[in-house]
Simulated assay, not measured.
Amino acid sequence: MRLLVLGGTHFLGRAVVSAALDRSWDVTIFRRGTSGDDPADVHSVRGDYTNPHDVARLAEHGPWDAVIDPLAFVPRETLSVARALKDHVQRYVVVSTVSAYEGWPVEPLIESSTVLDCPSDAGPDYGYDGDPGPSTYGFGKAGCERAVAGTFGEDRTTILRPGVILGPHEYVGRLPWWLRRLEGGGRVLAPGNPARTIQPVDVRDVADFALRCAEGISGVFNVTAPGIETFGDFLGACAAVAAPTGTELIWAPDEFLVSNGVRQWTELPLWRTYAGTWDVDSSRARAAGLTTRPLAKTVRDTWEWVVGEGPELSNERAAELGITAEREAALLAEYESRHHW
């Protein structure tokens, strides 16, 4: 199997390359080469996804059986890449997101749910940011889906719509933030209902499913965990590997946090009150071979990475994460005073 991975050294791309090499596939990566080293045993082509001349030069290194594209964010750029690779790749697997749905995070979602309307040649600023949604990010991903499907056709296109992806080498930093907070111990502000079910998926499971699709599965697939584990399970797993003795989780209700202006999704990562956030049906992907490991395994492996290599969280999204110690203490004091603790 000859595989092209666009990127290939960053989080999901890295996991895809590792899993493909484990299968003894012939792997080519296309990257700028500005950070990190090339993985061993791959063919590396230098170039910029946004530069048509670089992409045209990449095509000369083909053909490939499939390409996996985690870099699709701007429709007109993805359209240019798809057109350049059309005659050199049999199948295009594009990594989209549940944010491409018009109803996320408010409504339960299946693959036939309405997708945001975005032209295949749209630029980076197309759409708008709503609260709770949609977002320019979601519009862009929807346009990238359209760009690939319109170029390769439905029979040669696979669209993956993951929800939250966690695991080693996570660059956003949601799970690393919680691990470091639990490592700090003390009284920890825990958000909402501990019985709330959640659906984060391990990056390695997304990678494995992407490779399965690359072998010949077309269509659109939501890629999430089944939603049988809870936020309590999640923070419990974080505490089990990172927290010192005496650490206590204080679960504050949604209403208290919302009334105090706590920013959902960022100030307390992964906490969001909207009903559709963790109600994404991935049964179609499971029927096609998606398997997901227990959340505790993802947490444990991520903790080993955090204390071993340490995450590099210098991106804009990571900078938005986390509540300050002072604000957390003030909220805990207010909440506990209301309950006379």
Rank of each mutant, 00 (worst) to 15 (best):
G322K: 09
T247H: 08
P226R: 15
V307T: 15
V95M: 15
R161T: 03
L235E: 03
G13M: 13
V307D: 00
C144Q: 07
D37T: 14
G219N: 04
K86G: 01
N193V: 00
I323E: 06
A240H: 10
A287I: 08
S112D: 14
P176I: 09
A84T: 11
H53S: 13
W305L: 03
V307K: 12
P176K: 09
Q90P: 00
S259F: 01
P194F: 04
G219H: 03
P194Q: 01
R196P: 00
V95P: 10
R204M: 03
D281H: 01
E312F: 11
G192I: 10
L109N: 11
V74W: 05
V45T: 02
L58Q: 08
D117Y: 03
G163S: 14
R181L: 04
D254G: 03
L295V: 10
E107P: 02
A214Y: 03
G192H: 12
G138E: 11
S35H: 02
Y92W: 13
N193W: 04
E267G: 12
D87F: 03
P200Q: 08
E334C: 06
V188Q: 02
I165Y: 13
A210D: 02
V280C: 09
S283K: 13
R317S: 09
L3Q: 07
R293P: 10
E170I: 07
G143Y: 09
L79A: 14
A149V: 15
G167E: 06
R23G: 01
T273C: 03
R300I: 00
G227V: 15
V201T: 14
A330G: 08
W25D: 10
A207V: 08
D208F: 02
D41P: 01
V164W: 14
P105W: 14
T197P: 01
V188W: 04
L332Y: 00
T78N: 10
V89H: 05
D38Y: 01
S35C: 00
V258T: 12
G167M: 05
L189F: 04
A285V: 09
R76N: 11
T157L: 03
A100P: 12
E336H: 05
W303F: 07
E215M: 03
V74H: 06
F11Y: 11
T197L: 13
Y335L: 10
A225E: 12
V203W: 11
D279H: 13
Y92P: 05
E111N: 09
A243F: 10
W177M: 05
L211T: 10
A210N: 02
P253M: 01
R300V: 06
W303L: 06
V203F: 11
T50I: 02
F139N: 11
H339Q: 13
Y274L: 09
G227E: 15
W104A: 09
M1P: 00
P119V: 05
A242L: 13
D87K: 10
T114H: 08
V220R: 09
Y92A: 10
A19V: 01
W177G: 05
A285K: 11
G47M: 05
I159M: 07
P105L: 14
G153Y: 07
D233N: 10
A207K: 07
A330I: 00
H61E: 12
R286M: 14
